[in-house]
Design a binder for these strands. Structure first.
Lengths: 251, 251
DNA sequence: TATGTAAATCTTGCATACCAGACAGGAGAG
DNA sequence: CTCTCCTGTCTGGTATGCAAGATTTACATA
């Protein structure tokens, strides 16, 4: 919540800021989104914050626990699988439906792959999370279909939340290679193959998740205190207020 | 707006009622949705109506004209094409991704086709519009993927609005046959073929639209007065207040 | 020391009040 | 008779206020 009050907050900047924050992996799943705080930060009344939250809720990006607060979604394992399945359906359908790869499209894809490579070299994990999701938005943009782009953007946001929750180890290079093969198939004009590759890629990514074990609800606290799984320690630095120590309920 | 105040209006019944009204073709595109009227009808304050409208707006089912009012969406020709393209992508991807047709699924599809046949025999055009859209939701339900179901439900709602706007003549039997061939392909286990058929079917339906000529903005008034294209008459029954006579702006 | 209870403090939920823009209809001028 | 402008009335836009619920903390007690 620190650095998203940069813009001058026109109409629905609240909504966009939060989505942007999630897409860039700055906002973690389960983050509390206080109406009052957001209202203060964006210089509007709670009413408009509320409206933004409602809209985000219909996009399954945020959820409300009655009288408790708004929280960034924490997709369950079941939801995670559903989202990945949906993405496989849509992305493969998208690629298969393509009839040509324009020069501009090729250009953008290559530029993106270059960025990925760069981030891998730099080892910037947060940036990578963001880029790995962005790739699929780039694919959607190839179609030029605004409806599909919107849908995939939301699914990507949810995917990022899922990654942050369940991704034990981050096979960045593996994902990157997957993207490369998809682009390669597109360049040869073999869209059916690109579709198949995208399915395989998404399955691969999904398999990289640890959907069996529910995440430790206290893990963020533990990491804040910088201790691996147990034992106690004193200094807390990353916890600004006592409020963050709250146990979160998944219900 | 007459018969959607049946339910006892729990939390988001406003939203559901409107969507249901659209899915059943009772609510026409461009219908004005007054905050005050809805608030009265549902026995709540404008605040909650407003929230429902916001949610519907993010689903592209409703749109607001600043300081003028909320209206059921009237998709442009461009949007219409985009929506159909998106549906082709998603539905074909969905069918292609299937690995089996369960008995329960087969059962439901057949039941639906029977309903279609029945409605055709009865010549119930409104019911047909509803059923033609529902078929595709049934297909989505085969996947059991809640995310896809939601997406396709919204797209179907938009499709119905499009149909009401642009469908010059209603080739119900043609659509029905299309549905039958898709089901037949599914029954043989040839999901790739079903996918291709769904694309063809949707293209066929889209071609049945008249997307070139913008709909006459006065046509709803004319039909309300039950006169084909011109000349005047006196009694108006379906127009409760002068407000409804307003010319609507597409912007 | 551990535990149960109660009060305090936060949170959202909802309604209301007020503001400003847009349209319609009528009055007046040409 | 026609055109223009003005005003009344409706619309949504926004903020605020109050109420209800949940959680936490403090405190008393075993």
């Amino acid at each position: 919540m620190q650095d998203l009050h940069t813009a001058q907050t026109a109409q629905d900047d609240i909504e966009r800021s939060i989505v942007a924050g999630i897409l860039s992996a700055r906002i973690k799943p389960g983050t509390r989104l206080s109406e009052n705080q957001l209202a203060t930060v964006f210089g509007v009344s709670r009413t408009r914050v509320r409206e933004a939250m409602m809209r985000l809720e219909t996009r399954a990006i945020v959820h409300v626990s009655p009288r408790r607060g708004w929280f960034v979604a924490e997709p369950s394992a079941g939801e995670a699988m559903t989202v990945y399945a949906a993405r496989r359906v849509i992305e493969s359908g998208l690629l298969r439906s393509m009839s040509e790869l324009t020069d501009a499209g090729r250009e953008k894809l290559h530029a993106h792959l270059a960025e990925e490579k760069e981030a891998i070299a730099a080892g910037d994990k947060q940036r990578l999370t963001c880029l790995m999701g962005d790739f699929h938005i780039r694919l959607a943009e190839l179609s030029g279909n605004g409806v599909l782009i919107d849908i995939l953007r939301d699914l990507t946001a949810r995917t990022i939340l899922i990654s942050l929750l369940y991704q034990s180890d981050f096979h960045a290079m593996q994902s990157h290679l997957g993207h490369c093969t998809i682009v390669a198939a597109l360049e040869t004009g073999d869209f059916a193959r690109a579709a198949e590759l995208s399915i395989a890629h998404l399955e691969e990514v999904e398999e990289g998740l640890d959907l069996t074990s529910r995440r430790d609800p206290l893990s963020d606290l533990r990491t804040s205190l910088s201790l691996p799984p147990a034992a106690a320690q004193s200094t807390e630095a990353a916890v600004p207020s006592r409020r963050n120590n709250r146990k979160r309920r998944t219900a």
